[in-house]
């Protein structure tokens, strides 16, 4: 199984992003996804910066670099950015919306369907494969059993399967910015409020349970998904790539180190009360199904 680092879902200062990737370049990851997937207004790095970073990282690390696109396309300027990503031929595109699929397919740019593209059955995956899809990231709510059914019913050779295996899961996207709302700011004049949140803001029930996280227009799971204790099972299940989704830089690097420790010694260190793995076992996502 290969190891990937998903796009940073949070809004980090430019230097923090660059420092993070300098470390990821030296990690055990095989694939790095780069780019802004949540909010087009976040421009600590613009599309040109991301492309430059992709080139640098590819050269330094030899890892596969994939450019990730926005999940919720709202404006014409979002399409323009997408077109820029599709005009290059060096890197695959992670399409997180059907507009990205369409543009990549038109330009015959190989693409990965990100977790926000709804692929729930072999017929859908096969149609996208005909259009140039090389890999799919399973929607986060799907289970091991579901993946089995995909594999069992696929007509032909399945593209690579990547599973979101560690990090807070993206659960929803809105026109509304919840971070701006929390600060009583209008979205059009948000002051980049989310730049202050390294990893989003917890949304707790009035009894203190963390249900969700808000991250700009995105809602994330309140608990950190963690399939790392089940790596052996994932391997036997036809998963080609596991995705570590960036949390704090230190936490992400620790998760990457954990995977390496597992493959070398079969051991795990990471586990705390705010983790979950329910989706993989066909349960509600927030559960620890296998404890």
């Amino acid at each position: 199984m290969k190891l990937s680092v998903g796009p940073i879902l949070y809004f980090w200062p430019r230097q923090q992003v660059l420092d993070f990737y300098a470390q990821v370049a030296e990690s055990s990851a095989d694939i790095i996804y780069l780019g802004e997937t949540v909010c087009a207004k976040r421009r600590e790095l613009n599309w040109r910066d991301w492309l430059d970073l992709a080139r640098d990282l590819a050269q330094i690390s030899g890892k596969q670099i994939v450019l990730s696109s926005l999940a919720l396309i709202e404006a014409q300027s979002d399409i323009k950015t997408l077109e820029k990503y599709c005009q290059q031929e060096e890197f695959w595109l992670e399409a997180n919306d059907m507009a990205a699929v369409q543009l990549a397919a038109q330009r015959q740019l190989p693409f990965v369907a990100g977790p926000a593209v709804n692929i729930y059955n072999p017929a859908t995956l096969a149609l996208l494969q005909q259009q140039g899809l090389k890999r799919w990231v399973m929607p986060v709510e799907l289970s091991a059993e579901h993946l089995n059914a995909m594999l069992a019913n696929y007509p032909g050779t399945m593209p690579e399967t990547e599973v979101f295996a560690w990090g807070h899961m993206p659960l929803a996207y809105s026109a509304r910015c919840f971070t701006a709302r929390q600060q009583n700011l209008p979205k059009d004049n948000c002051g980049f409020a989310c730049l202050a949140d390294n990893t989003g803001k917890d949304v707790n029930t009035q009894e203190g349970n963390t249900l969700f996280k808000i991250n700009g227009i995105q809602t994330l799971s309140g608990h950190c998904y963690n399939l790392l204790p089940h790596l052996q099972q994932l391997q036997g299940q036809g998963v080609d790539i596991i995705r570590i989704s960036p949390e704090t830089p230190a936490g992400t690097l620790a998760a990457l180190a954990n995977v390496q420790a597992f493959s070398q010694r079969g051991q795990f260190i990471l586990r705390d009360e705010k983790q979950c793995d329910g989706y993989w076992f066909g349960r509600e996502g927030m559960q620890i199904a296998n404890s």
């Binding site: 709804n118 986060v140 709510e141 659960l171 249900l211 329910g278 509600e284 996502g285 927030m286």
Partner: peptide, 11 residues
């Protein structure tokens, strides 16, 4: 079609 909040809490 891109909201998993319900399955996250109820399955």
């Amino acid at each position: 079609g891109r909201c998993h909040m319900s399955s996250y809490v109820t399955g």
